[in-house]
Computed example of a mutant assay.
Amino acid sequence: MAELETRELEYFVAVAEELHFGHAAARLAIAQPALSKAIRRLESRLGVRLLERSSRHVALTPAGDALLHHGRHALNAVGAAAEKTRRAGDHQARLRLVIKPGGDANLLSGILAAYADRPDARQVDILFGGATDRADHVRDGRADVALLYAPFDDMTGLDHETLMVEGRVAILPPDHRLASRSEVTLADLAQETLPRWKGVRWTGAPEAGQGPEVTDAAEVLHMIRLGRTVALLPRSLAQPMQPDLVYRPVPDAPASELVLAWSQDDRRPLVASFVAAVAEASARSAGA
């Protein structure tokens, strides 16, 4: 069976993402002829064509699309292995928590306070991720733990502790046909167009139309104001409410969970202590 080398995967992924040999060569800081030769050699060893080439066009074949998908994961895994190994040997390592700006439902201060009370507490570095890439930060080792929203974020390979369960709200322009209602239903939203979050397939309203692709809440609100879409968001992510938009609860929408997530194979005391502190704080809050 033909084996793949990390460098070959890096070369191929660069070409597949750029779909241009010149741009990929510049990105990799190698000569274009050497890159072309490496890709041809890879195709020969695998026995499949990965790219369709012409003088003006480069496109992925089905085999190339598959290798791009799996190759990205493989490169992330290699990088994560190196990073996690380094951090496992660093006894003074800080804990890195990745969050979405405004995506902590005002729980972050309490979480940090609960952890700071533990005798083995370390410095916590707060990292900011995008709307859909925070789970990747944990999987590839850039962060130790993350605040995520289930079921929106991909939890593959992660364990988690639920911090809060909340309902969702529809965000509408003020002249929308549903704006006069005190609440709306998923059936109402089935006739609407909802945004497509980059990297997320699930909108929360299965029958709704697929609208413009967005990457953050600011883009969503802009599209709502333009009348291009409406949105269905966890209640905490709909804060602060904008005075020129209308917010209505959607009682029959599946609940959203704010969770603390970490890698399933991460057994470091650094992470275990933080998870335990957050779990204890969450239990006290629920009891109160």
Score class of each variant (00 low, 15 high):
2 A>R: 08
231 A>F: 08
202 W>R: 15
167 G>L: 01
169 V>W: 04
7 R>S: 04
251 P>F: 14
155 M>N: 07
42 L>H: 07
227 G>C: 14
227 G>K: 06
96 R>M: 03
262 W>I: 02
207 E>N: 13
28 L>Q: 06
215 T>D: 11
56 R>M: 01
248 R>S: 09
275 V>R: 12
238 A>P: 01
276 A>H: 11
229 T>A: 05
104 D>M: 06
122 R>W: 00
116 A>K: 12
271 V>H: 12
239 Q>A: 15
271 V>N: 12
135 A>V: 00
238 A>F: 03
39 I>M: 10
80 A>C: 13
163 L>M: 13
243 P>C: 02
273 S>Q: 03
286 A>L: 11
139 R>E: 04
92 Q>Y: 01
181 R>T: 03
12 F>Q: 02
106 N>P: 00
244 D>T: 09
157 G>E: 10
117 D>A: 13
229 T>F: 08
154 D>L: 02
30 I>A: 04
270 L>F: 04
176 H>M: 11
5 E>T: 12
272 A>H: 13
252 D>T: 10
152 F>P: 02
227 G>D: 12
138 V>K: 03
87 R>D: 01
278 V>M: 02
112 L>I: 01
264 Q>A: 13
27 R>K: 15
180 S>H: 14
185 T>A: 03
284 R>E: 06
254 P>E: 01
68 L>M: 13
191 Q>I: 00
111 I>Q: 05
258 L>T: 01
239 Q>M: 06
34 A>H: 12
222 H>V: 14
265 D>C: 10
199 G>H: 09
227 G>E: 01
218 A>E: 15
250 V>H: 04
183 E>T: 11
18 E>L: 10
126 I>R: 07
98 V>T: 14
163 L>H: 04
242 Q>G: 00
120 D>L: 08
179 A>S: 15
197 W>D: 08
283 A>T: 06
225 R>M: 11
274 F>A: 08
21 F>E: 04
173 P>K: 08
270 L>C: 01
282 S>G: 00
139 R>W: 05
210 Q>N: 13
136 D>A: 08
152 F>T: 05
281 A>Q: 09
